[in-house]
């Protein structure tokens, strides 16, 4: 059974001379919450838009539920919930009309759920969209994407304008959705703490490609910072594998590795009489390391 929900293969996209995505490969499996991390301008939105068929890639293939992204069928659209980075809506509409309008496109629309969410997020349905703050608009976008109970959620920086309390509520919502209904989610953000809670998998977008993708726990276990303090002078190139970054200063060195090899550590200890300690890195630090 094919449980690949989203598939990007060899995707390339340029804007004028600037190549944003380079032969990118990316897959999301059913029921996963995947966090997409990347610097500003790394191409997260571009990736998402190619995925959804809002942009046409120069090369490669983007598919959602085995359908070409550029030509997603109506049936599949019913199953996708998208929260774009900026919400543009009919400014004259009121929240309830906006939701009614959105709902009218879908064969199923859970009005009860929508109303509950509105209450929870403190939004008055009678407010005009033009009167909403940035954060409120973002909340509305999220609600809009949830009303038709899609299987697949794509969030493009959905919480950028939300305060920590609102963000927590949102994360909780996501987790509940994933729990109860095994929804698949792609969540692009640069707020690492949110991902550390909610995501099962992380994908790092760097230089137009997915530099690293994997289970969050494994990533945390593999990527570590080694602190080496020795009595002797340390060489330029230390015999350690999988080094992402190294900073050597005579007798001490700090290295970031992707996978600690115990035999290497032992050798260092013996050869240089060094003291080696491994520091766990959280996602933010890992992100910084990968983007150095």
């Amino acid at each position: 059974m094919n449980n690949i929900v989203i598939s990007l293969k060899n995707l390339s996209k340029s804007f004028d001379e600037k190549q944003v995505l380079k032969s990118l490969d990316f897959e999301i499996h059913k029921g996963m919450i995947v966090g997409l991390l990347g610097k500003n301008g790394a191409g997260k939105s571009t990736l998402i838009k190619c995925l959804l068929g809002l942009l046409r890639p120069d090369e490669g293939r983007a598919q959602v539920l085995a359908e070409d992204s550029f030509n997603i069928s109506s049936a599949v659209k019913q199953r996708i919930g998208y929260v774009p980075q900026t919400m543009t809506g009919f400014r004259w509409m009121r929240i309830e009309t906006m939701l009614e309008y959105t709902g009218s496109f879908y064969s199923k629309w859970n009005e009860k759920k929508v109303n509950t969410l509105l209450k929870e997020w403190d939004l008055d349905p009678w407010t005009k969209i033009s009167a909403l703050s940035e954060g409120e608009r973002q909340k509305l976008s999220i609600i809009q994407a949830m009303g038709h109970e899609p299987d697949i959620f794509i969030f493009d920086e959905p919480v950028a304008s939300l305060d920590p309390a609102a963000r927590r509520k949102f994360i909780k919502q996501l987790i509940e959705l994933n729990l109860d209904e095994n929804k698949t989610m792609l969540f692009s953000t640069h707020i690492t703490s949110d991902l550390e809670r909610a995501a099962a998998e992380i994908a790092f977008l760097k230089d137009g490609q997915i530099a690293l993708q994997g289970d969050l726990a494994s990533i945390k276990e593999k990527i570590k910072r080694l602190h080496i303090r020795s009595l002797k002078e340390l060489p330029e190139q230390l015999p350690i594998k999988n080094v992402l970054h190294s900073n050597r200063n005579h007798n001490s060195a700090v290295l970031t590795v992707n996978g600690v090899d115990e035999s290497d550590i032992k050798r260092i200890k013996e050869q240089y009489g060094a003291d080696v300690s491994a520091e766990n890195l959280n996602l933010e630090e890992i992100f910084l390391e990968l983007n150095r």
């Binding site: 959804l52 809002l54 998208y82 774009p84 543009t88 976008s141 809009q144």
Partner: peptide
């Protein structure tokens, strides 16, 4: 002019 409308079915 909204990206989201492109994803509204039909």
């Amino acid at each position: 002019k909204s990206n989201a409308s492109a994803l509204l079915p039909d």
